[in-house]
Computed example of a mutant assay.
Amino acid sequence: MGYQKRTWYPGVIYHITSRGNRKEIIYKDIRDRYVFLNIIENSLEYYKGEFSIICYCIMSNHFHLMIETKDTHIKHFMSRINSQYAKYFNQKYEYVGYLFQGRYYSQIIDSDLELMEVSRYIHLNPVRANIVKKPEHYIWSSYSMYLGIGKKRIVQTEKLIDCFNTMKNYKMFVEEVGNG
């Protein structure tokens, strides 16, 4: 039985999640997470302007990306980052077989409200998992970049900040749920 084709059209924004096979850990140390971010950065460069990362969060056994597409289907970007990371991981740890559990999950974001809610969900992931008390304390997400306290890397913050007018308003929006 084949996979159903993903809905895609130019300019769509996706919430993407990919999880380790059998929910196993896919980032065993700090270097693994840096390698993954470098693969994303290199893939953004490879596709030169075709994709923008709005936000992300890297957990131990899965990751979340919010990605805006231009004229290239998301499957090309995801295939590149997942296959390159799986190759790196399998070589490093001398594993064989699938690193990721099936196909990556994708959800189309089709309103500003959904964009805001999903970004909050992504940035609060480590808080809800009881890894940190505040989302800005988790260094493997883009949240600190939205607050202006983290080095801006791979993320284009403008689209989300435009929904809130200021970073301060975004922080209040995220943390009203995070502290409740």
Rank of each mutant, 00 (worst) to 15 (best):
Y98V: 01
I122T: 09
N82V: 04
R128Y: 13
R128W: 12
R120P: 00
F100A: 00
Y88E: 04
L113R: 15
Q101W: 06
Y138N: 02
R120C: 00
M145L: 06
V118D: 08
E94H: 13
L99H: 14
P135F: 05
R128P: 10
V118I: 15
N125C: 08
Q107Y: 10
Y143M: 07
Y138A: 03
S83C: 03
Y105T: 00
Y98M: 03
S106E: 14
L115C: 11
E114Q: 06
S106H: 06
S83A: 03
S111Y: 06
V132A: 13
N130P: 03
L99E: 11
Y143K: 08
S144E: 08
S119L: 14
Q107F: 11
S111T: 13
E136R: 10
Y93H: 06
K134P: 01
E114W: 00
G97Y: 10
Y104E: 01
H123D: 12
V132F: 12
I149A: 03
Y143A: 07
V132Y: 13
Y93T: 11
Y143E: 08
Y93R: 03
Q91W: 05
Y146Q: 14
Q101T: 06
M116T: 07
Y98P: 02
N125E: 07
M145W: 07
Y105K: 10
S142A: 08
A129K: 09
I109R: 04
Y143T: 06
G148R: 13
F100C: 00
K92R: 15
S142Y: 07
G97W: 03
A129L: 05
Y95A: 04
L147P: 01
Q107W: 07
W140K: 04
K133V: 03
N125M: 10
N82Q: 15
L124N: 09
G148E: 14
G148S: 15
P135M: 10
Y121W: 03
V127L: 05
M116L: 09
L147D: 00
S144H: 09
S119W: 11
M116R: 15
N125Y: 06
F89N: 10
S111P: 07
Y88G: 05
R128H: 15
S119M: 14
E114L: 03
I149D: 05
N90G: 14
L113I: 15
I81A: 02
L99R: 12
W140L: 05
H123I: 03
S119K: 13
Q101M: 11
S142T: 09
S119Y: 13
G148H: 15
R120E: 00
I149G: 00
S106A: 14
F89H: 13
L99P: 11
I122V: 15
Q101Y: 05
K92N: 06
Y93W: 12
Q91Y: 06
E94T: 11
Y85P: 11
Y138C: 02
S119A: 15
G97I: 08
K134E: 14
